[in-house]
Design a protein around this nucleic acid. Structure first.
Lengths: 337, 337
DNA sequence: TCGCGATCCTACAACGATGCATATCGCCGG
DNA sequence: CCGGCGATATGCATCGTTGTAGGATCGCGA
């Protein structure tokens, strides 16, 4: 059996409370006592029982991160950054996958699985504006992704609209006029897909280019295969375009693959722009020009924001929204001008 | 404040232990009582306090997974599978990143951070054979990656040697003779890098091909950038080869990128073979022929194996080794024959 | 009517830690 | 020489749950 405070106390010849004080860095302890206790701790290999500690203290030292799936590189890289940021604050991270499914996202917010954590960072894909009430939970919550005005929680997110507007304008500035889009979600109201489409349309409008539904392709999920499928559809129906804006890098990479299979040259015939700046975007052939939405900043800030709320206990802070800066990373698939 | 068993009991007019019995599915409860209790639970939104439960029961309902980093797609996809498998067994998964660093791997095995879990699945990259003692831990442990004979824990792993031998033979069968390798770790004794090199050498030997150090390139980490760097080195020093075996897909993809920058055609001039069968291997240009080492099976089996040990409590099972089947996935970068 | 087992429910004591209140000591200033 | 204060160590209650043991209630046969 694992050693407890009592065992250590017996060995060191002090009360178990004193051991607790040593472990917790209580200042008023004579060096001699401290040393005796520490020796006993080492000898027994004592490790505090975290269940007991958190039962008593109300803190678990863990946070939860819920993303659609780690199989999508964007979320994997995001998760990596979140875990690293949490670790710096001495927190462990529990990762949940929702599949981007609304029902599972909502279920998770109710689930007792989270009672083991001090708070949740949620990246919802399926939730709708009317789900605001579900976000009114009795634990600290930071939502990643754009907020609607009445969502009650903290938000840390990217400038979806601004970034896609800038991306689209980048393509326009390089001389493209027929810019296809891959990744639309038609039944969505506030998700990234919808916001990115809005940015795209704003840019077109600002430059007097008509919006043409025929070159806007859906993709329910954002895997490579979905991008490939969408591009095949566009090609099959004979759509005309001189650029493609994939609403994320994996879509763009899947699409780029199909373009080249079809004998089209990138970027000569069709420029390709992605979104996310995944590690792999720098190593595709051709390398992928993309929008870096500030993923690492988002991860770090999400953890910080959650910690602020955890720190305050119940003290009410108003819901805050924090926005990352973005930038366009120019590579081969869509050269500037 | 969150509701407790007592609150529910008061509302339902029963003892708090009865509520506990209802929650835990104890069979001998009158339907009327059960219903009363359930109504009270709903009304108060009662959720069991997992810290208290696990303090009392000794089980936490969580497992830990330690991988080098989620930024590497292989580990991200593996983590996704592990989390999914754990969820099916009603376990949550806590993810740690070790950076593949020996010191951090060893530290993790001692860390109180794990006391919050029922067991650990560890994918060590930096540990050495002499670290066997560190694996003798007082909690259930499953190690991913090849075992040395005296490591005391369960192992679930891939057939590194067999798979690379088969991969190398596949290239040989397709007519290649100068097969470069990317990903060697010279200071390693038992890691995947060393084992894969062994498989490679066995295949060469079996076919009477001399091993040539000049076409074996190191890569300490296995990112795309490392593969690219290694390939640049090979090219710079004028190495001659007609195939490249990347010891994982990201290395192979990085290398393939550099090959094509250098004006070499894949597969005509140089065939490229990867290892892992990542999602993205199917969408590169050209698509990547690769060895599928049975990642999903490994994830599922690791969780099952850990659960068996958790179930037994302290009961001694001998350490077991379970090996996944592999297969070669033929794509464009290295066509068969 | 009583006895007896099955069924249903309850009381109490843990699990291992922390917070608070309190004891003990030595030392200083008045 | 005493009161009081800071430094050090302790004891007890408590967090919310489950395990164990035992008390109440019921139906049914004798």
């Amino acid at each position: 059996m694992a050693a407890t405070l009592r065992d250590v106390a017996d060995l060191a010849g002090v009360s178990f409370k004193t051991v607790s004080n040593v472990v917790n860095g209580y200042p008023h302890i004579r060096p001699a006592t401290r040393e005796k206790v520490e020796r006993a701790i080492d000898e027994l290999g004592y490790k505090p029982n975290l269940s007991a500690r958190s039962l008593r203290s109300g803190r678990t030292g863990a946070i939860a991160l819920a993303v659609p799936e780690l199989n999508l590189s964007y979320f994997a890289e995001l998760a990596g950054f979140v875990i690293a940021a949490a670790e710096r604050a001495d927190l462990v991270t529990l990762v949940e996958q929702t599949g981007g499914d609304r029902a599972r996202e909502l279920a998770l917010l109710q689930s007792p699985r989270l009672r083991m954590t001090d708070g949740l960072i949620l990246d919802p894909l399926g939730m709708r504006p009317e789900d605001a009430a579900a976000l009114d939970v009795p634990f600290p919550l930071v939502v990643l992704g754009e907020r609607t005005s009445d969502w009650p929680s903290d938000h840390v997110t990217m400038r979806n609209v601004d970034a896609t507007r800038a991306g689209t304008e980048y393509l326009i500035a390089s001389g493209r006029r027929r810019i296809a889009v891959i990744g639309e979600h038609e039944d969505e109201v506030i998700g990234s897909a919808r916001l990115r489409l809005r940015g795209y349309r704003e840019a077109l409008e600002a430059h007097g280019i008509d919006y043409d539904e025929r070159i806007v392709a859906r993709a329910a999920l954002w895997h490579r295969a979905d991008g490939a499928r969408a591009m095949r559809e566009l090609l099959d129906r004979g759509a005309e375009f001189d650029a493609v804006f994939g609403f994320n890098d994996t879509l763009a990479l899947g699409a780029m693959r199909v373009l080249q299979e079809a004998g089209l040259r990138v970027p000569e015939d069709v420029a390709v722009l992605g979104f996310d700046d995944l590690d792999e975007a720098a190593y595709s052939i051709p390398s992928l020009t993309t929008v870096d939405p500030g993923r690492e900043w988002i991860a770090r800030t999400a953890v910080e924001t959650l910690l602020e709320r955890i720190g305050r206990g119940g003290a009410e802070l108003p819901p805050r929204t924090k926005l990352a800066d973005f930038r366009i990373v120019e590579r081969e698939s869509a050269p500037r001008a």
